[in-house]
């Protein structure tokens, strides 16, 4: 059963992109769009967009890398763990939870380690997986998405994104306690 499910997921992941890459030009071709010329016209922008993102991403990643290297996260976690104990959030999870909005690769590293030390089917393993699977790297998305259109004043995007992350982590804790119990 599990094997079959894995196959289905793999098939969807493998097929989705090639199918789209053929389907869209096919519709275009049938509608008499000059597919090659139009593709090149659109693709021209790719370079500019990527270059435009650089300063935004440099700023964000520089600050986050410094923060990570300083060891501030560990100190922060030891301060906050008495509070999170009250709601049944294991202290081991905290670094992953706080790293989530800051760094995708950083979180993945922490979570892989948690899964390997506690076992993927343990409560901590399941909770860590759920947190990773249900939230995004808010500051990366912020830098890349707003950077690509040169938006510097992000207004309420930071609080909205972080509140959503917090809600996601709380919801992950709630549902994991319900489904995997401790």
């Amino acid at each position: 059963m599990s094997e079959f499910f894995l196959e289905v997921l793999k098939t969807i992941s493998n097929w989705a992109i090639p199918v789209l890459l053929v389907l869209i030009p096919t519709v275009g071709f049938l509608k008499k769009v000059k597919v090659y010329e139009v593709f090149v016209e659109g693709a021209k922008e790719g370079f500019n967009v990527a270059i435009r993102i650089i300063p935004f991403l440099v700023a964000i990643l520089m600050a986050i890398s410094m923060f990570r290297a300083s060891g501030a996260m560990d100190i922060f976690v030891s301060f906050i763990s008495p509070i999170t104990d009250l709601i049944g959030m294991p202290a081991e999870i905290l670094p992953a939870a706080f790293m989530r909005p800051l760094s995708g690769s950083g979180t993945l590293g922490i979570i892989t380690e948690l899964i390997n030390t506690h076992g993927p089917d343990s409560f901590i393993g399941n909770l860590a997986s759920t947190i990773y699977g249900s939230t995004e790297t808010t500051f990366y998305v912020l830098a890349v998405y707003f950077g690509s259109v040169a938006i510097k004043k992000t207004r309420h995007a930071v609080p909205a994104g972080l509140i959503a992350d917090f809600a996601g982590i709380m919801a992950a804790l709630f549902i994991c306690q319900l489904m995997f119990g401790q």
Binding site: L20, L21, I24, P25, G28, V33, V35, V38, F39, V40, E41, G42, A43, K44, E45, G46, F47, V49
Partner: peptide
């Protein structure tokens, strides 16, 4: 570039 090309089509 790839996706912007496809999106333009």
């Amino acid at each position: 570039a790839l996706w912007l090309g496809i999106m333009k089509i």
